[in-house]
Simulated assay, not measured.
Amino acid sequence: MRATILILITILFSLSGVSQQVYNKKQPFAHTFSIVARDTITGEMGVAVQSHWFSVGSLVTWGKAGVGVVATQSFVNPSFGPRGLRLLENGLTPKMAVETLLELDEGRDVRQLAILDVHGNVEAYTGKNCIVAAGHIVGAQFSVQANLMDKNTVWLAMAEAFKKSTGSLAERMLAAMEAAQNEGGDIRGKQSAAILVVKAKSTGNSWEDKAVDLRVEDSENPLKEMRRLLTIHTAYDFMNKGDLAVEVGDNKLAKEHYMKAQELNPDNLEMKYWYAVTLANNGELNEAKAIFKNIFKQNNKWKELTPRLIKPKLLTISEEQLQEILKL
């Protein structure tokens, strides 16, 4: 095994161009609880975290479509994120990647680390000197890990919540984090949270490879705010689907998507506006006018925008019908 680890270290050196990682007592604290997981239906992989530390997502959560995800925490070594992903890309298992990273790290006893790959293989580690309560549980295609917790039952609560939850991967991971907080969470309190979900296969375009990328950098209740943001994110996902349907001329499908978006985010004027535009394009002008009238009453700038949609053919109605809308 020692010989194998030395070979892996050589590989990592060649990939990263870095020397052995030396433990630095000034490295940031990211005492926290987190989850890495894979959706067995979509193949998406995700990592989610909450901590009493500013901008925890910038340190803890790492992922790459078609490769895997990493959570690096406790006295955090941020390099474990990109380096762990490189090791997975080069064919190492999560277990081999964790062993390789720790072999290089003089601070291994205060680290906590979890790595999951595109196949759902997962490995987690909790250093012997992580601040109690600290521990982890590896389950079927997921791992939960926590340190500096109020109780030693936090990570068990996370695992049970994730296994029992339904919905998207992001929703299930959020449920696990909410269970952790309900169990006591970080003994210091709460401040920031993050959720990152990457696709099962890379599109070749990094900007298309993240299904969810949300952060709450500083909040009195970061998970409550994350729940709100995730709901809005889902609503805008329906809006995007509606826009795509409009592009291909399927206004009926666009209407369905826009309606779902409104149901999730009922106070958003823009969502209502594009729904009204779709109704008008579908020939349902009276219903569209009622919505337009309400929107224009709240913000007249939407009326000013409306005639500008004619040239790019986003609004495909007659001049007479347009004037009916503008008179509202």
Results as ranks from 00 to 15, higher is better:
Leu12Thr: 04
Val18Trp: 12
Ser19Gln: 13
Lys26Ala: 08
Phe29Pro: 06
Phe29Val: 10
Ala30Cys: 10
Ala37Pro: 02
Thr40Tyr: 08
Ala48Met: 07
Val56Pro: 02
Gly57Asp: 06
Lys64Asn: 00
Ala65Ser: 09
Gly68Asn: 04
Phe75His: 15
Arg83Glu: 15
Gly91Gln: 08
Thr100Phe: 00
Asp109Cys: 01
Asp109Glu: 15
Arg111Thr: 00
Ile115Cys: 04
Asp117Ala: 06
Asn129Arg: 06
Ile131Cys: 03
Ala146Ser: 11
Met149Tyr: 03
Thr153Arg: 15
Met158Trp: 03
Ala159Thr: 07
Phe162Trp: 01
Thr166Pro: 00
Ser168Thr: 06
Leu169Lys: 00
Glu171Asp: 12
Arg172Asp: 00
Ala179Gly: 07
Ala179Thr: 06
Asp186Cys: 10
Asp186Thr: 06
Ile187Ala: 11
Ala200Cys: 05
Asn205Asp: 15
Glu208Arg: 07
Ala211Leu: 10
Ala211Trp: 02
Asp213Gly: 05
Arg215Gln: 10
Arg215Trp: 01
Val216Cys: 04
Leu223Val: 03
Lys224Arg: 11
Arg227His: 02
Ile232Tyr: 13
Tyr236His: 12
Phe238Met: 08
Lys241Gly: 12
Gly242Asn: 02
Gly242Ile: 01
Val246Gly: 05
Val246Met: 15
Val246Pro: 12
Lys252Val: 13
Leu253Ile: 07
His257Tyr: 14
Asp267Gly: 08
Asp267Ala: 07
Tyr273Ile: 01
Trp274Cys: 05
Thr278Gln: 09
Glu284Gly: 09
Asn286Phe: 00
Lys293Glu: 15
Ile295Ala: 05
Glu304Pro: 00
Pro312Ile: 04
Glu320Asp: 10
Ile325Lys: 02
Lys327Arg: 14
